[in-house]
C-alpha cells in the first residue's frame, strides 16, 4: 500500500495548500514573526551579550520551532476531527486503505510543512536575524522531527478523543500551550517551585525543548540521549493508546 500512501500524501498536501491561508498561515507567518520579534528585541540586548546563552540566541529559535510543531499538531487534530465528522474518514475506510496509512499521510504532510517552515526560518534567519545563526541544520532538523513526531502523537490522542471538530482546536490548544510555560524555555526547570517542577518532568515538551536547545547550541547527541528516549516513549505510548481509542465516526 506504499503507492497508496504516496498518492494520498501528495493529494493531501495539494488540498492543504489550496486552503485559504494554508501555506501563508503555516509557513510564512511563523517565519515573519520569528524574524520580527528577533529584530525588535535583539538590539536591546546590546552587542556584548553572549549569543549562545540569551533568549534571542537560543530561546527564541527553539520557541519558534516548538510553536511550529504545536501548530502542526493542532492542525492535524482539527483535520482528523473534521474528516471524522464529515464522514471522510469513513469513506476512506471503505477502501483497501489501511487506517494507519491515512494517518501516516497526514503526519508526513505535517512533517513536510514543518521542515519547509524551518528551512525558511534558518535561511531568512541567516540574512535578517540579529544574532548570527550558525546552526547544525541537519542535526537540528532531526531533533525537530523527533520532537514533532512525539508531539504529534499527543495530537493523535487528542484527535481520537475530542467529540467534535469545533472543540478540536481549543481543546488541543488548552492542552498544548500551557506545556510551554513549564518546559524550561522561560525559566530554568531547576528554579521552578516544586509543583511546577513535577509538572515539567511529566510534560513531554520539556524534553523536546531540552533536545532542541541543546542541538541548537551545539551539544553532542550523546548529551541528549535521555531526551530522545523520553520523546520516543511518549510517541509509543500515545500512538498505542490512540490506536485503542480511535473512533472512525
Amino acid at each position: 500500500m506504499l503507492r497508496g500512501l504516496w498518492k494520498l500524501t501528495w493529494i493531501e498536501l495539494k488540498i492543504f495548500l489550496r486552503e485559504p491561508l494554508g501555506a501563508i498561515g503555516t509557513i510564512v507567518i511563523p517565519v515573519l514573526v520569528f524574524i520580527l520579534v528577533g529584530r525588535a528585541i535583539g538590539p536591546k540586548l546590546g552587542p556584548t551579550a553572549n549569543a549562545a546563552n540569551t533568549f534571542i540566541g537560543v530561546g527564541l529559535p527553539v520557541l519558534a520551532s516548538i510553536l511550529i510543531a504545536i501548530s502542526a499538531v493542532l492542525s492535524l487534530v482539527t483535520i482528523i476531527s473534521i474528516y471524522r465528522e464529515g464522514g471522510i474518514l469513513k469513506r476512506l475506510r471503505a477502501t483497501p486503505l489501511r487506517p494507519h496509512t491515512i494517518l501516516t499521510a497526514h503526519v508526513i504532510v505535517k512533517l513536510l510543512l514543518t521542515a519547509a517552515t524551518l528551512s525558511l526560518m534558518v535561511l531568512a534567519g541567516k540574512r535578517y536575524y540579529p544574532v548570527g545563526i550558525h546552526v547544525r541544520f541537519v542535526g537540528f532538523t532531526i531533533a525537530l522531527l523527533i520532537s514533532t513526531c512525539s508531539i504529534l502523537s499527543i495530537g493523535f490522542l487528542i484527535a481520537s478523543i475530542v467529540p467534535t471538530a469545533r472543540f478540536a482546536q481549543p481543546i488541543g490548544a488548552i492542552i498544548m500551550y500551557p506545556m510551554i510555560a513549564v518546559s524550561g524555555l522561560f525559566a530554568p526547570i531547576a528554579s521552578l517551585p516544586p509543583l511546577l517542577h513535577a509538572a515539567a518532568v511529566i510534560v513531554p515538551l520539556t524534553y523536546a525543548v531540552s533536545l532542541l536547545a541543546g542541538i541548537w547550541r551545539g551539544d553532542p547527541w550523546s548529551a541528549h540521549l535521555g531526551d530522545v528516549a523520553a520523546l520516543a516513549l511518549v510517541f509509543f505510548v500515545c500512538t498505542a493508546l490512540s490506536a485503542k481509542v480511535f473512533r472512525w465516526e
Binding site: 493529494i11 488540498i15 489550496r18 486552503e19 464529515g86 464522514g87 471522510i88 469513513k90 469513506r91
Partner: peptide, 10 residues
C-alpha cells in the same frame, strides 16, 4: 455510503 463526504478541496 448513504452519508459520506470527501475532502472539500479534492
Amino acid at each position: 455510503l448513504q452519508q459520506a463526504q470527501l475532502q472539500k478541496r479534492i
